[in-house]
């Protein structure tokens, strides 16, 4: 078990290296392939009145004249050993892990990531709880009452949930529940949990519901399909033959087994969400990792993009690992040697 985890963690680190190298390559090599130069890269980070000298200065400052592997090496070194940054009025030291300084705002990336993580974490956890409750229950009921009016309603609504984009449901939700009814917080009103749990809950309620709506839709469908499959298994018949109440048959025997594949998908979904619920954070103007990533990408802010990509990749990898470990707990047949 321990060796397995160590092996997986090692693989995870390797994967993160590959992800970072790929991101780096996309950023530096692609522009070069279409004829870009250090100067054209640097023009993205200067004002509209910039002279060639300014462009040159910035290309130097951001290290664009060095070969790509040197730049990459410098970045990696910063993560392990820290880095120095010329803030003009003095040299600023960025302690390890230093994910570099933003090309645009010149602020170190790592504190930003740490600052934004709780937002995304709050959003993801709250929404996950909601969508699991909602998705699993409706999916189960749907499967057990297959073909009924309820089943068809749930499936239609969930189709809507799967297909309606967050920027539609989110804006609609804001319009109706926040601006018309005043039940939920307006967009962009995130309050940290540590500051005021009540406000925290209030500010995240609508984002949770909107995000959970979309996910619970697909989870309802998954649960329904899984339940339909497990409910035809032999052991369900055995459970009934034992004289178990129908509810116990459905939940303890049916749902329990149907949950296993959902757990895998949940792990992936949740891991991805921790990397940033991009659209939700965008729509509700929540200062989370997803919003950070979008802003970073629109601004071509490589250090930010790298940092947030790595963080997202890290969460996906970790979520996968946890899912695999949980699998062993949930399904005794998958005990790891």
């Amino acid at each position: 078990m321990i060796t397995y985890i160590i092996r997986r963690l090692f693989a995870a680190v390797l994967l993160l290296f590959i992800v970072s190298a790929a991101t780096f390559a996309i950023f530096y090599l692609f522009p070069r392939l279409v004829g870009g130069t250090p100067e054209t890269l640097a023009t993205r980070y200067v004002g509209r009145a910039a002279t060639p000298e300014t462009v040159n200065l910035i290309a130097h400052k951001l290290g664009f004249y060095d070969p790509v592997y040197v730049q990459y090496g410098r970045w990696i070194k910063g993560i392990f050993l820290g880095a120095d940054f010329d803030a003009g009025a003095g040299i600023e030291h960025c302690p390890a892990p230093c994910f570099g300084y933003s090309f645009i705002t010149h602020q170190p990336v790592w504190p930003d990531l740490l600052d934004r993580l709780p937002v995304t974490l709050s959003l993801a956890i709250g929404a996950a709880i909601l969508w699991l409750i909602l998705g699993l229950s409706t999916g189960t009921i749907s499967a057990l009452r297959r073909g009924s009016l309820l089943d068809r309603t749930v499936m239609t609504v969930s189709l809507a949930g799967v297909s309606l984009p967050i920027f539609f449901t989110g804006l609609l939700g804001l319009l109706v529940f926040s601006y018309q009814l005043g039940w939920t917080a307006p967009g962009g009103s995130y309050t940290p949990f540590t500051e005021n749990p009540g406000d925290w809950f209030y500010s995240l309620l609508l984002p949770w519901v909107v995000l959970a709506f979309q996910f619970s839709a697909s989870y309802a469908r998954l649960t329904r399909a899984g339940m339909l499959e497990t409910m035809s298994e032999d052991y369900i018949r055995t459970a009934r033959a034992k004289g178990l109440r129908e509810r116990d048959v459905n939940v303890k025997h049916g749902l329990r087994a149907a949950l296993t594949p959902i757990l895998t998908i949940f792990g992936l979904d949740f891991g991805l969400l921790l990397g940033g619920a991009v659209l939700t954070e965008q729509v509700f103007s929540l200062p989370g990792l997803g919003k950070y990533a979008v802003d970073a990408i629109t601004n071509n802010d490589l250090p930010k993009v790298l940092g947030v990509t790595l963080m997202a990749a890290f969460f996906v990898v970790i979520a996968n690992l946890i899912v695999d470990l949980l699998y062993a707990v949930v399904d005794p047949r998958v005990r790891l040697g």
């Binding site: 200067v46 004002g47 910039a50 002279t51 000298e53 300014t54 200065l57 910035i58 003009g88 003095g90």
Partner: peptide
């Protein structure tokens, strides 16, 4: 003068360095 340091403030307007009679190769007070 500090606004003239375009390595530190690359996005700012550049009118002053264009018009002021600054010493040659002046890079700002830093």
């Amino acid at each position: 003068l500090r606004s003239v340091d375009k390595a530190t403030f690359p996005n700012g307007p550049a009118y002053f360095e264009q018009f002021l009679n600054l010493p040659k190769d002046y890079k700002g007070p830093y």
